[in-house]
Design a protein around this nucleic acid. Structure first.
Lengths: 343, 343
DNA sequence: TTGTATGCGTTATCAT
DNA sequence: ATGATAACGCATACAA
């Protein structure tokens, strides 16, 4: 007993009409008599007729589904972004198909090809922490796939981009630390070739410079895997905290780096903010409940997801080739709490 | 320049063969000469031929995609579960299509119909906090849709179920509170008709009974919307904390209820665990960093996702109708930390 | 206003 | 060993 849905053919047979008449009646064509239309429509409703989306896809060469490629679903930022994407997709009648790279370049390439081969109409993506080469994206794009990049964007120009103002966010975060009396601030960031990483590091540097604080390269650290692994963060923090330039505050530039830095301080019994101030990028919704309350840069993940999805779906829907490429930049939110309040 | 993939017809044309020959060669049929096979295969490889999954779906009446319906994607438990689902799907060549009910019954019904109408091969679902009527599920199921229920399961029998041992988890959690010297324990749970709610409340009651502590119904509270809304939790907690039976500890039976209870204590300046002990169900991965470190029941979300996805995909793949229905019950993890250590 | 025929990409069933 | 044809469900150009 397998799921046998009613088709146009069934309706045509039952009503003694041709499939084309039924098809037209269902699509409310003006060249169908009101009576026939009524007959077909009521029969369709009674028998719960639903057009077969697969047949439609084959015919129309579109699938009404969009692919989303992120590094990790179980990451608060991305799950919030997917939430936004799903909400728009739902409104516009699109499926959302999920794939994740797990921060591996190889998985990013294969996942993207997987999505493309499943004939999605477009792809929303945020590159992995290992991705410095964009040819797989460029190729797909050149072959005509609709794509929108979000969060971690790409360097080539002819594509919609949605991101937060990372420079400003890091600039303001660093300034907050400085204004609270910290002046030897370390910066722990993601893989160095990610767009978001360099923007954040530049914002950090600019804030120091504007406050006449010397930039010490040794105070800057990069995590090649997004800070996903505690040991990676630990090693970097050991260098900083045990080094000659021992910082009095830390700017943690990603979700995972932030929590792993907290964990490091807990494990090594370093009190925040007495021994070291801490300000981190984080999208967790309970950072105010942490010990001590964590000052954070929060990214508008849900909104980014919505905007990116809207751009993509509009691009898919518009028949004409896109010539104008948006580069939407949203502001992040800065929340000050106890972890930056120096005694 | 739209994404124009190469088809069997293109290959046939280029090589002066018929489409059927090409099709057979690609599927490595024994009735094709080695030379032809070689020619076709190498041409296909050169031109990066990929069979069109939509045409395949239309022909085979299957889509190689599974739907996942959860209440909220941006919830740590569900995003971890989706992570597990995606990992299995990836291995077996299935798409994962996501939909969420947002804890609304209406959205659950429409999302499920949406998934079904997009011809997914099967659906993995966890019902919304409003769902007490399962007819929409039962109907779809009776029409032949493959379904597996997880986390919040359903009452009808002929379906695979994957869940955690909620009774045992709540029993052990309550016992831990009792052993730490608390004896007037309140229990805040989800909507009362959810399977998980009653199992947890029963576990709580059983633990009290086994320790000869009277069960006070007034100490038990239910959140109709999964504790999603702070005010809902606040109202319930006000009744408890300002009531005549003021509890000395709280068992918070969901992710959101747990964090909202912490927030309540923070807002109302109630110190944990001095004034009230707290033990909550939570899947956040930094509960040890909370203030004070939170004792939690953690659910094996990733594993549940994997197991549920495996069951579903096996069910889809097996041609025979399923007669044996699994009811997989996994143990939860109990982590004791400061929030239950009475001074 | 309605019906007939064709095609989307693929495979299965017939031929040859 | 290979080719022609039909079918999956739908929409549409063309015919009537």
């Amino acid at each position: 007993m397998r799921f046998e849905a009613i088709t146009i053919k069934d309706i045509a047979l039952a009503l003694g009409l041709s499939t084309s008449t039924v098809s037209r009646a269902l699509r409310d064509s003006h060249e169908i008599s009101p009576e026939t239309k009524e007959k077909v429509l009521s029969y369709a409703k009674e028998n719960n007729y639903k057009p077969n989306p697969i047949a439609l896809s084959l015919k129309e060469k579109r699938s009404s589904s969009i692919g989303v490629l992120v590094s990790e679903i179980a990451n608060s930022f991305f799950s919030q972004a997917i939430n936004g994407i799903e909400s728009v997709a739902q409104e516009k009648g699109y499926n959302v198909i999920i794939a994740q790279s797990k921060e591996y370049f190889d998985r990013e390439v294969s996942s993207m090809q997987f999505l493309a081969s499943r004939s999605v109409d477009g792809i929303l993506f945020s590159v992995s922490a290992e991705t410095s080469d964009f040819t797989h994206i460029q190729q797909l794009y050149n072959r005509g796939m609709h794509m929108v990049s979000f969060d971690r964007t790409v360097s080539f120009g002819d594509i919609h981009k949605v991101s937060v103002d990372n420079f400003k966010a890091a600039y303001e975060a660093t300034t907050l630390l400085i204004n609270n009396g910290f002046n030897n601030i370390a910066c722990i960031a993601n893989a160095s070739f990610l767009s978001i990483t360099m923007e954040r590091v530049e914002g950090y540097k600019a804030a120091l410079k504007d406050h006449s604080i010397p930039i010490i390269e040794e105070n800057i650290g990069f995590c090649s895997h997004g800070g996903l692994i505690y040991e990676e963060v630990e090693e970097i923090l050991n260098k900083k905290m045990l080094g000659i330039h021992k910082p009095d505050a830390i700017l943690a530039c990603s979700d995972k780096i932030t929590t792993n830095t907290m964990r490091y301080c807990q494990v090594h019994k370093i009190s925040i903010p007495q021994e070291v101030g801490l300000l981190g990028f984080s999208n967790l919704d309970l950072t105010d409940l942490l010990s001590p309350s964590l000052s954070v840069v929060r990214q508008p993940a849900y909104e980014m997801g919505r905007i990116a999805a809207e751009l993509l779906i509009n691009q898919i829907a518009s028949k004409r080739p896109v010539t104008q490429f948006n580069n939407v930049v949203l502001p992040a939110e800065l929340h000050q709490r106890d972890s930056t309040r120096k005694k």
